[in-house]
């Protein structure tokens, strides 16, 4: 990125005695994974462009525990959850946005019972909100006429019934949105969910991400749009496996919008 990103922490806000509009939950992938960091930065660029008063937890953020929970380790999940809730509640956080549908689902649905009650939204929902409020504008010429197919993340779509926000946001690019046969409720998983990201797949005749990539290729897209750092990795790997990396790129919705700014 050319311009320096402004990323204030909650500790800094606290020191000034202020509250941000929203807390940006970066998540483990968004913090450490090289590909996901680009998504994080693209989203921050949008937040900066829209003059959003946001903060991150920085080193005070820890893994949500989501992946431990899906792996069956309820102890580790609840330990992580309660530590995070302690921090979030100490800062009196009300609203949280995240680029990771797994963090989104976990904090939104599984933290409340443990004492963490927040208004949690996915970054595609927040980008839509910013555009609708006139705080963020999209040029609409970078991807004009390109074919984009959106791959629904399981934990945003089926798990939380959000199918429209990412598609609505993408429409601002003036690209042609094409749907895979399996989309929205019947979308196929990228293969990374349920802690699969961190292990080798069981024996089978194909990898899930390759099957999903084949479904995406049926739409002859220029771009596969994702809304999840893990889906992004899986689809990128799928495109490589299909030797299509020269003609098709995999980009997060936030990146597509960030590339389409003045």
């Amino acid at each position: 990125m050319k311009e320096q990103l402004k990323v204030p922490t909650m500790a800094e806000y606290m020191a000034e005695g202020k509250q941000p509009e929203i807390l940006f939950w970066v998540g483990s992938a968004g913090s450490y994974d090289d590909r996901a960091k680009k998504i994080t930065k693209a989203f921050v660029k949008l937040l900066n462009n829209a003059n959003v008063d946001f903060a991150v937890l920085g080193a005070e953020e820890s893994n949500t525990g989501d992946v431990a929970k899906r792996a069956g380790n309820e102890f580790l999940f609840q330990m992580q959850a309660m530590m995070n809730i302690e921090v979030l509640n100490a800062y009196e956080i009300k609203r949280i946005v995240t680029c990771d549908p797994h963090s989104f689902n976990c904090i939104k649905n599984e933290y409340p019972e443990l004492g963490g009650i927040y208004d949690v939204i996915h970054h595609t929902q927040y980008i839509k909100e910013l555009i609708d409020a006139g705080r963020l504008s999209v040029k609409g010429d970078t991807y004009k006429g390109k074919r984009i197919t959106f791959h629904d993340p399981c934990y945003l779509g089926r798990a939380n019934n959000e199918f429209d926000a990412p598609r609505n946001v993408l429409q601002n690019t003036n690209a042609t949105l094409v749907e895979m046969k399996k989309h929205k409720r019947t979308a196929l998983c990228c293969g990374a969910g349920g802690a699969q990201m961190f292990k080798e797949p069981e024996k089978g005749d194909k990898d899930v991400n390759v099957l999903r990539t084949e479904q995406a290729l049926e739409t002859t897209p220029d771009i596969i749009a994702t809304g999840c750092p893990y889906c992004n990795t899986m689809m990128t790997d799928g495109i490589k496996a299909k030797e299509k990396e020269d003609s098709i790129i995999v980009l997060d919705v936030a990146e597509l919008i960030a590339n389409d700014q003045d």
Binding site: V7, S28, S31, Y32, T40, V56, G58, E61, N63, M197
Partner: peptide
């Protein structure tokens, strides 16, 4: 505090 062996203090290095 992350599924990979990175230092928690480095969480904001991406900036």
């Amino acid at each position: 505090g992350a599924p990979w062996p990175y230092n928690q203090q480095d969480r904001l290095n991406w900036v």
